[in-house]
Simulated assay, not measured.
Amino acid sequence: MRADARKNRDHLLATAGAAVTEQGADVSLRDIARRAGVGLATLLRHFPTREALLEALLRTSFEELTAKADELETSSSPEDALVSWLRDCTAWTTEYRGVTVLMAAAIEDTESALHASCVTLRAAGARLLDRAQDAGRARTDIDGTDLFALVAALAWLGDQPSLAPRADHLFGVVASAVLTGAVSGEAEVSDAG
């Protein structure tokens, strides 16, 4: 890709990121193009569908969360790693309003541009959960799909203005329900709220 085309694409992604943060994943493509100072045709040349735009926007974050899981797997206790990753993943999904609905749909739709990234992200969380389960630190009646659903549920709570003030407290309740026995460090989930 030519340098000027890369610069234009990066500008469109930055603009789209701000728009999705402010208005949610269903923000108008026309509005994103207008904010970026380009025509809709220019936006569509780079990203022919909303899903293609969101996949490009979210891919870097998915990769970062996956890398974070890899790092936590070797640097933290099983329960600390699981809670830390769960907190980071939930915070990220809350940042991009409405993205959890798209992620939940994409994980089941192999034709979705977001499918592979969502599957990889779910697998990263599942590895941390498996590790905590193997250490006897997490309940064994849940799996990576359940963990992915819990992230979506926690993010949804953060998206609701009337519930947002309770989001940290409810994160602690959910994290405590996932873990078993005594916890340490990061895994000591806050009950304040």
Score class of each variant (00 low, 15 high):
Gly185Phe: 02
Ser75Arg: 13
Leu44Lys: 15
Leu121Val: 05
Asp134Tyr: 00
Asp141His: 11
Ala52Phe: 03
Ala113Tyr: 03
Ala135Pro: 05
Val189Arg: 06
Ala153Ile: 04
Leu82Ile: 11
Glu64Val: 10
Lys7Thr: 15
Arg127Trp: 06
Ala135Leu: 08
Asp80Gly: 15
Leu154Phe: 06
Leu53Asp: 07
Gly185Met: 02
Tyr96Gly: 00
Ser176Glu: 11
Thr66Met: 05
Ala116Glu: 15
Ile107Ala: 09
Asp88Thr: 06
Gly185Gln: 10
Gly39Val: 08
Gly39Phe: 04
Arg30Tyr: 12
Ser84Lys: 06
Asp168Met: 02
Gly39Arg: 07
Asn8Val: 10
Asp191Val: 12
Asp134Arg: 13
Ala81Gln: 12
Gly193Ala: 12
Lys68Ala: 15
Ile107Asp: 03
His115Ser: 00
Pro165Val: 12
Arg97Pro: 01
Gly39Lys: 08
Ser76Ala: 15
Phe171Asp: 09
Met1Glu: 09
Gly98Val: 13
Asp159Lys: 01
Val119Met: 06
Ala25Ser: 15
Ile142Phe: 05
Val174Asp: 04
Ala164Ile: 07
Arg127His: 07
Ala19Lys: 09
Asp80Leu: 03
Asp26Ser: 14
Leu12Cys: 08
Ser77Met: 09
Ala135Ile: 12
Gly136Met: 04
Gly39Ser: 11
Ala124Gln: 03
Gly181Arg: 07
Ser190His: 00
His115Thr: 01
Tyr96Ile: 03
Ser75Asn: 11
Val38Ala: 07
Ala105Tyr: 01
Leu114Val: 05
Ala149Thr: 10
Ala18Glu: 15
Thr60Leu: 10
Asp4Tyr: 06
Leu72Ser: 03
Arg127Thr: 14
Leu13Met: 10
Thr94Trp: 11
Asp10Met: 11
Ile142Gly: 02
Leu44Ile: 09
Thr15Phe: 12
Ser117Ala: 15
Leu154Ser: 08
Thr140Lys: 13
Ala113Glu: 14
Leu114His: 02
Thr60Glu: 15
Thr42Gly: 02
Arg9Val: 02
Val99Gly: 01
Gly185Cys: 09
Ser76Lys: 11
Asp143Asn: 14
Asp130Arg: 13
Ser84Asn: 08
Gly37Cys: 11
Val178Tyr: 06
Glu79Val: 04
Ala153Cys: 05
Arg35Phe: 00
Thr60Phe: 03
Gly37Asp: 09
Glu71Phe: 01
